[in-house]
Nucleic acid binder design. Structure first.
Lengths: 108, 108
DNA sequence: CACATCCATGGCAACATGGCCATGGAGGCA
DNA sequence: TGCCTCCATGGCCATGTTGCCATGGATGTG
């Protein structure tokens, strides 16, 4: 296996960073259902509109979502289809972590 | 689709956060080949030993790696098998981003 | 035009992260 | 015991992230 350039890891890290916030993950989950405008997402997240707008900018900059203008509103949609499988994997990790914690509890 | 608890997104974000650093991704890629001690990983990353140790603590805390003690040394190994598929997905995103950038270049 | 809504951006304060250095514990060896 | 290596932790500083508020551009409506 040849060593990969540091640049690759930086590109990957940028995407992972965009995923590293609960509000952004909530947004992505909602967008997996249907495209939504910023106002809808602001209600959903329950934060300031400017805050949500910045979260969306992060996701867009990472290439995870796309935006579409329609009149005054801007609709965001999911651009990446392969996140679901990843999260089910992550959830597996989390469950395993819980199991191990419980094992420690029982043995003490 | 019922709304998921905010707690779930925080748990997911914790994992994503652990993946959001180039050095940690480099480490994970190396561990995908074979388990390694901290000294090996320190050489690989090229940072201070304490820095690498902290990165490993982050990965361990997220449940992504496991550690095994053997004499003076501590070997770290990958605990999660499903990362490869995720990165190929991410790489797809990155390539698409490039394509779009190039399209913008051509049209200007 | 006047006025409303929807959204993005800049500014700022609070907090988190990442790097190094210095230190110290744990284990192997003579 | 004394000394070495391997590793983790605390301290510290620089930098990045996240939230809000305030503002302003763009667009639709009367």
């Amino acid at each position: 296996m040849k060593p990969k350039p540091r640049q690759l890891y930086e590109a990957r890290a940028k995407v992972a960073k965009a995923l590293a916030h609960p509000s952004r993950l909530l947004i992505l989950d909602a967008l997996a259902e249907k495209e939504m405008c910023v106002c809808d997402l602001t209600d959903l997240v329950g934060a300031d509109q400017s805050t949500v707008s910045k979260h969306l900018a992060v996701l867009k900059n990472a290439g995870i979502v796309a935006d579409r203008k329609e009149g005054v509103m801007i609709f965001y949609s999911l651009k990446v289809a392969c996140l679901r499988g990843f999260w089910s994997c992550v959830e597996g990790v989390l469950k395993q972590n819980l199991k191990e914690q419980q094992a420690v509890m029982r043995s003490s």
